[in-house]
């Protein structure tokens, strides 16, 4: 990478490395520990952790891991480790879809009546 010219930005290409497990990845907002750069300021007396905590749904976790890996692959299409990780995510997503029977996974999409809409908390 001899791209350090003047008058042009330079960003190092990320290398595939440590990956969070899918539950932590969704909670942090990325599968990559080295891209997790949180903001520490909070209003005084503010409880920064969610009281109920709670595990986020397995389907959301695996879809998010796949989505974050996809953006990495967009700029690193030849990275075999990333491809393997991404394909694994898609396989698990398919398995979960086969088990479930809800609108978010494709089945019974037309059935809007029997469940809350997504903005009311109707999440898979």
């Amino acid at each position: 990478m001899e791209n350090h010219g003047l008058a042009i930005p330079y960003i190092p290409m990320q290398q595939w490395g440590q990956i969070y497990d899918t539950a932590q990845a969704l909670a942090e907002g990325t599968i990559f520990p080295e891209l997790n750069k949180p903001f520490y300021m909070a209003p005084e007396g503010c409880n920064t952790t969610l009281p109920q905590g709670g595990e986020l749904a397995a389907f959301s976790q695996i879809c998010f891991a796949a989505a974050d890996a996809l953006l990495y692959l967009d700029t690193h299409p030849g990275d075999m480790q990333a491809r393997e990780y991404y394909e694994n995510c898609l396989k698990k997503k398919k398995e979960l879809m086969a088990e479930a029977d809800c609108g978010c996974c494709g089945a019974a999409h037309y059935d809007w009546e029997s469940k809350p809409v997504v903005w009311e908390g109707g999440n898979c």
């Binding site: 969704l26 907002g29 986020l56 749904a57 389907f59 959301s60 879809c63 998010f64 989505a67 809800c102 609108g103 978010c104 996974c105 999409h109 997504v118 903005w119 908390g121 109707g122 999440n123 898979c124």
Partner: peptide, 12 residues
């Protein structure tokens, strides 16, 4: 296509 879920849950 539309998936009936939020990418990250919102429960306020």
């Amino acid at each position: 296509t539309y998936e009936q879920r939020l990418q990250y849950p919102v429960k306020i």
